[in-house]
Design a protein around this nucleic acid. Structure first.
Lengths: 228, 228
DNA sequence: GTATGTTTGTGTTCTATTGACACTAACTAT
DNA sequence: ATAGTTAGTGTCAATAGAACACAAACATAC
């Protein structure tokens, strides 16, 4: 036994779970796997697993996400810790504490291996029956994401580096789940000065070509809010 | 050894730390203890300790806060999970994961016992040298609190149940660290419809008495924000 | 009981932001 | 040349935010 436990101290089971979002065809989707073992065998679940000693929770998440869902964290544009859930009853095997992360990506394709458990993206508007309390974790993540869109540039992580303003608006609509006014959206978003136009245009269909824009930064930036 | 560890799985050390705020004389203060043991012996620190098996993190925090700082969670008006920090180097004894909570109270007085470690409240504007990364955790909590004031009724937890509008404003100023305009503050805050006037007045000095107000709810309420 | 000092309580004006709303520009395909 | 489709743009009204000053109500000292 590890000397760290010499004094008889026993920590709870520590797990990580990840909520990975991407937008496909204007639809917000979340990455799920189908559990291969009990408990909740064959039910859909967020990719998650144990956090072993010597691993940070981020490292544990990277490993678990890769092993069980075939998705590399490096293929995501933004990863952020969400919340830490703990309930005695959460895991039928005993007291567990789960640290959850939210990841945002663009065009993420799970690479299936022998270890992966049928990973796939599901529309958040139409989720299958989920294991554990994962439905509420997804809702929590979605709420957080909606909130982040109002005071950060987080949307950059869900759309291509070069994008049209229509793509940008569609991405907002996918996350918010409601339509936005085109002129007001553009006026407002451009006033935030988070993006700049490039001199490239994209022609993709029998209509006027759209100018491509780019975020000033591909890292999370926070806008200031204020009470007074 | 507990059967939960039969398969050789070893979780990291799990700890909880709490950031307890209150306002004293218009000054935002945070609860610290002076560490009795190495590491960081005699340095000031946030009340924290191990999370044992069978305990939720909340329960661990309640216990640790009471044991080391002589403060009962039940004497706080609001407790909220903040963030979970983990670094290999955080604790000299090995890999540790710390779940942090923020607590808000009014007129909190630590009750010293043999087990407490010199608990006391310190102005966040004038902190002593701190153990671990606790200075950054306090900053994180303070930032979160500032942010919460702009879209919740969280301030209720820092002022008496019955309060004057001046007290309310002073509390905001203590947290935000800057003065606010009296008329604008009142107009704005009253428009949120979180509080209502009572028919009581308070006379405390050689001046016009102030009307006492009350929050509609003594629980955390969130106002809606929106992008569009 | 009058004057002084102190905090409470209140409105207006100006500026900035938000929300509603419709047409022309530029391209492809027929 | 025409039809169809998406891109791109401005005005007006309503709401919210920021700056700003004075009278009301009390206690105290004289």
């Amino acid at each position: 036994m590890d000397s760290m436990y010499d004094d008889g101290y026993l920590p709870p089971i520590l797990t990580v779970d990840s909520v990975i979002f991407q937008i496909v065809d204007g639809d917000l989707q979340v990455l799920l796997i189908q559990r291969a073992k009990e408990p909740f065998k064959d039910k859909w679940a967020l990719p998650g697993g144990y956090n072993a000693i010597g691993e940070t929770t981020q490292e544990a998440m990277d490993r678990v996400l890769s092993d069980k869902a075939g998705v590399k964290t490096s293929s995501l544009q933004l990863v952020e810790q969400l919340y830490t859930f703990d309930t005695i009853a959460r895991d039928p095997r005993g007291h567990a504490v789960s640290i959850t992360y939210m990841g945002l990506g663009r065009n993420v394709i799970p690479e299936e291996t022998q270890k992966t458990q049928k990973p796939g993206f599901f529309s958040v508007k139409n989720l299958p029956e989920l294991a554990y309390d994962h439905a509420s974790i997804i809702k929590y993540a979605h709420d957080r994401l909606i909130s982040k869109l109002s005071y950060t540039n987080a949307i950059f992580a869900l759309i291509p580096e070069l994008f049209t303003l229509s793509q940008l608006q569609t991405a907002y609509e996918a996350v918010l789940g409601r339509p936005l006014d085109k002129r007001n959206f553009r006026k407002k978003f451009l006033s935030l000065e988070l993006i700049h136009p490039t001199d490239e245009y994209i022609r993709e269909g029998a209509h006027r070509p759209a100018r491509l824009h780019k975020f000033n930064s591909q890292k999370l930036e926070t806008l200031s809010r204020s009470f007074d």
